[in-house]
Amino acid sequence: MLEALGVTEFAEVVYRALLASPGRTAPALARQLDRSERAARRAVAELEELGLVSRLPGRPVRLTAARPDTAIDLLVARRRTELDTVARDARALAAEVAERGQQPDELLEILVGQQAVADRFTQLVRGCERELMVFDRPPYAADGPRSEEDVSTRLREHLAVRGLYAPESLEYPGALAAARRAVEHGEQSRMHPRVPMKLAIADRRVALLPLVLEDMVASALVIRPCALLDALVALFELLWEQGTPLIPEPDGDAPSDPGLLALLAAGVKDETIARELGVSTRTVTRRVGELLDELGARTRFQAGALAQRRGWLAR
């Protein structure tokens, strides 16, 4: 119920538990909910920041939940203020564009042809000066995934690169190894099971994306500063926050297989997982079964998602 207001799933579970039994300590909540004390304290800190939980006087620290109607009204008011700010910014941007007299054909450019799209991507990467944000998913305008050589060269020149990979992009032969080499060069890489399209954004000033989603290599749209570009940047940031690290750092409470967890969270196929981990598909199936039991998950993707929510995949 509270997810739309920025409350994570487990934090809401903790909030409901405190509504039912006020005065609990964080360790008592952890025991009641069968979770680690660290996870319980993390959820309590989140709820305190949002004003949903407060501390009672005395020691040990006991917690109480704010009344749902009052607390949620405050969260709704805060979110409404944030949306009003975004709306004001959008109106100001529209006024700025109108004042500069920019025409639509100055903000948008259509590319036709697979080679033209590939060439413009290379041009976009080489012209980027500070930050490159990429949604990586097939099909590709070239013979394989995006040019690692171009990106890694720019990385050596201190360009900040963030790549969000679709599971399908890692199924190409050598794609996962190439992505890991990009990480070694300095790229921040995450995976997401629902990367909606191909996208590259350079310096938050120009974006390249498919013109037609059904055929993502035959034509593309170049977008310069406008409200649409702002929306694409916001979409990237949203999915980036939801993504899991390509090479995770295991949490202290996590099992000793963070690589498998990250691949599960991204929805990567068993064959790709087995190739990446250097084991047989049968071994992957066995390990996945063990993780499902440990997490109490019904599906593989749910196992990865639960592991991420528990903090087992550090970002």
Results as ranks from 00 to 15, higher is better:
residue 131 E to F: 12
residue 47 L to I: 05
residue 215 D to Q: 12
residue 72 I to H: 05
residue 126 R to Y: 13
residue 177 A to V: 02
residue 21 S to P: 06
residue 265 A to H: 00
residue 184 E to R: 09
residue 111 L to S: 14
residue 208 L to P: 09
residue 48 E to N: 10
residue 243 G to Y: 01
residue 251 D to I: 01
residue 48 E to R: 15
residue 221 L to S: 03
residue 12 E to M: 01
residue 102 Q to K: 01
residue 74 L to W: 13
residue 79 R to H: 10
residue 309 R to T: 00
residue 207 A to V: 12
residue 60 P to I: 07
residue 9 E to N: 06
residue 271 E to V: 15
residue 156 R to K: 14
residue 157 E to C: 06
residue 188 Q to C: 04
residue 178 A to L: 07
residue 125 V to W: 01
residue 146 R to F: 08
residue 226 C to N: 15
residue 14 V to I: 06
residue 291 L to D: 05
residue 187 E to Y: 11
residue 97 V to L: 15
residue 224 R to Y: 13
residue 45 A to H: 00
residue 224 R to F: 11
residue 49 E to F: 02
residue 59 R to W: 04
residue 31 R to F: 02
residue 133 M to N: 01
residue 249 E to A: 11
residue 26 A to R: 05
residue 309 R to S: 10
residue 179 A to F: 08
residue 106 E to N: 11
residue 144 G to T: 02
residue 230 D to L: 12
residue 51 G to C: 10
residue 243 G to K: 01
residue 247 I to M: 08
residue 98 A to W: 08
residue 285 T to F: 03
residue 311 G to D: 09
residue 180 R to D: 05
residue 184 E to Q: 01
residue 223 I to T: 05
residue 236 F to K: 02
residue 198 K to G: 14
residue 3 E to D: 07
residue 50 L to Y: 02
residue 246 L to M: 15
residue 151 V to Q: 04
residue 143 D to V: 11
residue 157 E to N: 04
residue 10 F to D: 04
residue 230 D to R: 15
residue 249 E to I: 15
residue 235 L to E: 15
residue 312 W to T: 12
residue 106 E to I: 13
residue 223 I to G: 00
residue 198 K to L: 14
residue 281 T to K: 15
residue 242 Q to V: 06
residue 283 T to R: 07
residue 172 Y to N: 02
residue 175 A to H: 09
residue 43 A to Q: 03
residue 242 Q to G: 10
residue 64 T to P: 02
residue 288 V to R: 12
residue 121 F to N: 03
residue 121 F to K: 02
residue 17 A to K: 13
residue 129 E to Y: 09
residue 257 D to E: 02
residue 174 G to D: 00
residue 214 E to F: 11
residue 198 K to N: 12
residue 33 L to W: 01
residue 5 L to H: 06
residue 228 L to S: 06
residue 71 A to L: 00
residue 86 V to C: 13
residue 25 T to G: 03
residue 1 M to I: 09
residue 303 A to D: 00
residue 72 I to N: 02
residue 185 H to T: 07
residue 116 A to S: 15
residue 265 A to C: 10
residue 64 T to R: 14
residue 194 R to L: 13
residue 195 V to W: 04
residue 120 R to W: 15
residue 177 A to Y: 03
residue 308 Q to P: 02
residue 307 A to G: 05
residue 71 A to G: 05
residue 185 H to W: 04
residue 280 S to T: 14
residue 240 W to R: 10
residue 134 V to Y: 00
residue 256 S to W: 08
residue 156 R to I: 07
residue 122 T to R: 14
residue 305 A to N: 08
residue 12 E to G: 09
residue 216 M to Y: 02
residue 98 A to P: 04
residue 276 E to D: 07
residue 127 G to N: 09
residue 15 Y to D: 03
residue 55 R to F: 05
